[in-house]
């Protein structure tokens, strides 16, 4: 797993209180990992903070799975 993926996974586990092995490529934050809409806003903020990037609102809306997040951050960072 890439360094970005490891760091993203750590944030997801911390914020959503889920087991690490549940955070898979296609795991949806809302449907699979128990997040609500406020949790996803906070997750995106945590990604921004961790990677020193800005994720615009329209891009954030498309980040629905763990894989989406890793892909977006890898390209933006």
């Amino acid at each position: 797993m890439s360094d970005v993926a490891e760091r993203v996974k750590k944030i997801v586990v911390e914020h959503l209180g889920v087991e690490e092995d549940k955070v898979t490529e296609n795991a949806s934050f809302i449907d699979d990992l128990g997040a609500d809409s406020l949790d996803t806003v906070e997750l995106v903020m945590a990604f921004e903070e961790e990677f020193g990037i800005e994720i615009p609102d329209d891009a954030a809306e498309n980040i629905q799975t763990f894989g989406d997040a890793v892909k977006f951050i890898t390209e933006a960072a």
Binding site: L38, V41, E42, M45, E48, E49, E54
Partner: peptide, 10 residues
């Protein structure tokens, strides 16, 4: 302001 948590108000 972008760092204000969505959980701040509730």
């Amino acid at each position: 302001p972008r760092r204000v948590s969505p959980f701040f108000v509730p």
